[in-house]
Amino acid sequence: MLTLTVLLYIGAMGTSIGYAFYRDRKLEAASHITLIAAGILHTGLLLMLYRRTDLFPVFSMKEAAFMFAWAIAIGAILVSSIFKGTTPIIGFATPLVLLLIAASLLLRGSAPEISPLFNTDIFPVHVVLSLTSYGLFALSFVSSVMYVFQETSLKHRRVERITQWLPSLFILDDLGYKTLTIGLPLLTLGIITGALWADREFGSYWNWDPKETWSLIIWLAYVFILHGRISLGWRGKKFAWGSIFCFVLVVFAFIGVNFLFKGYHNF
């Protein structure tokens, strides 16, 4: 089932890229349908993990990467279904999904001992909120990359090829912004629930664990670019680059921090 899911994601990516080159409507539809199928299987896999252990499958880096991938995929499905003409996002989002699944598979198989610390009600909520916000940031990143792509092609007047295929700058800009306006509150809640959990377990809300510090940095970075957009009119290219930069921070906070620093976060 996992293999099939991965194959479907590859299929969605392939057809979406094929659509970019051949602009055949059938390929566009195919990429959308394959992605939905992959998303359903992916959800099924998560549910199976949940039923096996009766725990939210979010206790190791391996599982978190898998869930992160899921959040991106579901987000891409929602976006491409809701906003007209945004199916090319599939071609950009699926590589991220596949990378995360690959990372999840490469990481050590057995989950670390689940310390009773984690086995509380609030912990899964903290993780799911944080990962969903990461998923939304990823989508914002993807639309920003597409924005930069489309913007460059318009600036260089390479109109004949790319403009037909990518969504309009307006939609991409809007998408990059809207995903952040949902993602940021979720991250905020994720941090708050994390703090509540930390208080219960360690007796203090904030312990300057590297992950905590980095979450705060990410939070500030996103607040910064959103603020710039709303009050200073940083839209378009500036905002797109901002979102891209912030997502690099997210990736670092998600993976890099664990390798460089030692903290009580498993991921």
Binding site: R23, D24, L154, V159, T163, S168, L169
Partner: peptide, 25 residues
């Protein structure tokens, strides 16, 4: 439906409209 015959805009005015749509939605 099955050939891309209508996909490519060929008049200057319609290209202008296409481009405008790619910028403004």
């Amino acid at each position: 439906t099955f050939t891309p015959i209508g996909l490519y805009t060929v008049s200057v005015s319609s290209v202008a409209v296409e481009l405008a749509k790619k910028i403004f939605g």
